[in-house]
Design a protein around this nucleic acid. Structure first.
Length: 493
RNA sequence: GGCCCCAUCGUCUAACGGUUAGGACAGCGGGUUUUCAAUCCGUUAACCAGAGUUCGACUCUCUGUGGGGUCACCA
């Protein structure tokens, strides 16, 4: 059968009205996954038919967002297809042509009313507590369309429409869902209702992925498909992505973030793609971590969820950590770079960057957490404040677990002596540990145990409560810096 | 309000008539540890309600309730 050999064509068709958020990206992802899985084509189409709402730079931002996630299009604003441009404002002739055909068939007519008059009708209907339908005012005879007046679709048949949706199953809606809607606006641009159908036809789109807010207008689309004499594509209405509190759909007005914000906060695109795919879709089973290829492999329309799902950033952070643990040190460094204090990158401190990477890696969920791991003054990484400044230790003090400060001082003093004995060329974590360990382990429980020396050391070296162990810190800092920081800490006790 | 859609732990979800309703995040408890973080182990927690159908319903039907969407010369 012809249907079986027909290549899948999907599209993502945003309007350039600002940044992209989770919801839009998820729709794009599903369309992309399906096209990729079936060896079909994924198109990025820009629906810029509302000049008033258009936001400068959006088209680029949309492309950047999708590219970041690794969603690639065969045709897009930057790559016209055999059907021409993927930007609707550059396809005006196509719509005009299609509109003229409808006019010729008697299925479209110029709207004889002004917007004010229509508003009157609407108010009247409202006062009478019945729904406003333009078709109640449809003129008996149509004027000739001069191409300047708004053009309305003459709904061919007012009936109850039934259709199939691969996600929702069999759907239907009553006659009140049908009306003579605008095809071409007064400014000459087509409406979404008209343009998307004409484009989908011309671009050979076989599967429409879209949010479920379009379900209620589907009868109108169907009546237009009828008027055009074409068979509609397959509909896949995706469940909404809800706000964290599930009270409503996630939207820009409710604080939905720009997807590129996640990029700059240090989320990995693979983690984001994985996470997004699992809101509203699940292949069944317990597996949660899917590579891009695994997603493509596993993706099936039947497993798309009906109900909406909330976007939970905590779980995204967890998933991001999972992905961070898989990348190489080199890749980690590339991502971490923007968040590491400049003095470290410039090599102006004795700190060895390559030693720090593994430490950072195990602590963070998101790269933007990195700055908080460094000392508060930002001057010296993993460092005490400069000797001139006031002590800037975070939170707790050098004194450990209620032990007496003077004993801490003598412990630290002793540790300093032991560490001094380690040769600078052999100043490794192992050797520093060996130098101090016997002394630390010998401290009796009542006096705080080995923590009574290890804690102050760690704190003295890092200036942070949350920090790596003192031996690793010592190696990173080098002998000179280690001794200098311990000495400084002693002066504070 | 009309029309339409949806409904399993707090959250993402598994289950496709027969399970002690499973997993993950978060939470809680514990182990380890250099009182954090990380990690390991354990654990709390759900079928919206009511009728049917059936030997048997989370799964099928109906009704109710709740939530969402949509009623533009916006997409």
């Amino acid at each position: 059968m012809a249907e079986n050999t027909q290549k899948v064509v999907t599209r993502f068709a945003p309007s350039p009205t600002g940044f992209m958020h989770i919801g839009g990206v998820r729709t794009a992802l599903f369309a992309y996954l399906w096209a990729t899985k079936t060896g079909g084509t994924f198109i990025l189409r820009i629906e810029d038919t509302d000049k008033a709402r258009e936001v400068e730079g959006s088209i680029q931002q949309i492309q950047d967002s999708l590219k970041w996630l690794g969603i690639e299009w065969k045709y897009g604003p930057d790559k016209p297809g055999p059907f021409g441009s993927c930007i609707q404002s550059q396809r005006l002739d196509t719509y005009r042509e299609a509109a003229q055909k409808l006019v010729d068939k008697g299925l479209a007519y110029p709207d004889p009313f002004t917007t004010e008059q229509i508003e009157e009708f609407r108010k009247k209907a409202e006062a009478e507590k019945r729904p406003f339908l333009f078709r109640d005012y449809r003129p008996e005879t149509f004027e000739k369309w001069d191409g300047k007046q708004p053009l309305r679709f003459k709904t061919p048949e007012i009936k109850r429409y039934k259709w199939h949706d691969v996600v929702r199953g069999d759907l239907e809606a009553g006659e009140e869902a049908l009306d003579d809607f605008i095809l071409i606006k007064g400014d000459g641009y087509p409406t979404y209702n008209f343009a998307h159908i004409v484009d989908d036809l011309n671009m050979g789109v076989t599967h429409i992925f879209r949010g479920d807010e379009f379900i209620s207008s589907t009868p109108r689309f169907l009546s237009l498909y009828d008027g055009l004499g074409i068979t509609p594509p397959v509909f896949a209405s995706l469940p909404p992505i809800l706000r964290d509190d599930r009270t409503k759909k996630l939207g820009k007005r409710d604080g939905a973030k720009d997807i590129l914000d996640y990029k700059s906060e240090g989320y990995l695109p693979e983690a984001m793609m994985n996470f997004l795919a699992l809101i509203g879709w699940n292949p069944g089973g317990d597996k949660e971590i899917f590579s891009r290829d695994e997603l493509v492999q596993a993706f099936v329309l039947e497993k798309i969820q009906k109900g909406g799902g909330a976007f939970n950033e905590e779980k995204l952070a967890w998933m991001n950590k999972e992905y961070i643990s898989k990348i190489s040190d080199e890749q980690f460094f590339e991502h971490a770079k923007p968040f590491i204090p400049a003095v470290l990158l410039e090599g102006k401190t004795p700190v060895k960057l390559d030693k720090i990477i593994p430490l950072l890696r195990e602590k963070i969920h998101v790269f933007s957490e990195i700055p908080a791991l460094f000392a508060p003054d930002g001057e010296l990484a993993f460092a005490l404040p400069s000797s001139a400044g006031a002590p800037a230790y975070e939170g707790k003090s050098l004194v450990w677990k209620g032990t007496d400060p003077s004993s801490i001082k003598s412990n630290l003093q002793k540790a300093l002596e032991l560490i001094s004995a380690v040769a600078p060329e052999n100043f490794t974590a192992e050797n520093v540990k060996a130098a101090v360990w016997d002394f630390a382990a010998a401290i009796p429980k009542e006096s705080g145990g080995k923590g009574a020396v290890l804690w102050p050391m760690r704190y003295a070296l890092s200036g942070k409560e949350k920090s790596p162990d003192p031996f690793v810190l010592s190696e990173i800092l080098g002998k000179e810096e280690t001794l200098s920081r311990l000495t400084h800490a002693l002066s504070l006790l």
